[in-house]
Design a protein around this nucleic acid. Sequence first.
DNA 1: AAATACGACAACCGCATCTTT
DNA 2: CAAAGATGCGGTTGTCGTATT
Length: 221
Amino acid sequence: MGRKPCCDKVGIKKGPWTAEEDKKLMNFIFTNGHCSWRSLPKLAGLLRCGKSCRLRWINYLRPDVKRGVLSDSEEKLVIDLHAQLGNRWSKIASHLPGRTDNEIKNHWNTHIKKKLEKMGIDPQTHKPIISDSAIEKINEDHDDNLKASINASSSFSSSSCSSGIIDEINLSCMDYFWEELDDFIGLDFSTFSVDDEHEDYERLSLAHESNVIDHQLWNIV
DNA sequence: AAATACGACAACCGCATCTTT
DNA sequence: CAAAGATGCGGTTGTCGTATT
C-alpha cells in the first residue's frame, strides 16, 4: 500500500549550496531531466533532500530564470496582481516570465510592502491606512454597527471585516480627509483640480511643503 | 578598526493537495 | 476507496554583505 518511505533525513546536508553542488545538480538535470525529485539527489551524487534540489533548481539554477531587481513595470504588475490574488505568490509569478514565487515574495516583503506603507496604503488591503484621528472621527459620526466593526478590527483586515464595511470605513476616512483639508487650507475639494499648473494644486503643494498637511494625506490626494 | 544593526535574499519547514499503489 | 508518498506553496528563519556607531 502507498509508496516507499520518503528520503531519510540522516546524513542530509543543509544550508547554502556550494558551486560544486550546483554543478552536480545542473549536469544531472541537463542530461537526465528531473524524473523524480526524491531519487534525484542519490543519482546525482548529492547529499541533499529532493525538496532542497527542486527549490535550488527552480529558484536559482534554471536557465530561464531572470536575475536582478524587478523593473518598474514588473513591480507595478506584482502590485496589481497582489490586489487581485493576495499572497498567492506562485500565481503571481506565473504572470512574470522568468521570475520565481520566492523572488517575488522576497521583493514584496523587503521593498514593495514598505513602499506602499510609506505611501499610506495598507499592503494587505491595498486601501488607505486609517489614522487614529480618522477612526475617532468616524466613531463620532457613524452608527453603532459601523463603530462595532471598527472596534472589532483595528487593522481592518479582510478576514475580520466584510468588504462592504471596509469600503464604508474607507469612504468615511476619505470624507474626513477632505474635511480636514478644507479646514486647514480653505480649499473646496468638490471642485478641486489636480492639474499641477492649477492654483489649487499649488496651494496644496505649499501646504505639504510647510507641513500643514502630513505626508500620508499628501500621498492620498 | 571593531562591534552592532539592518537589509536582502537564499533556504528550510510545515501543511495542503495531488498522485500512486 | 483508503493509505501513504510526492509535490508545491506560503510563512518563516538563517546567512551574508553593507552601513552605521
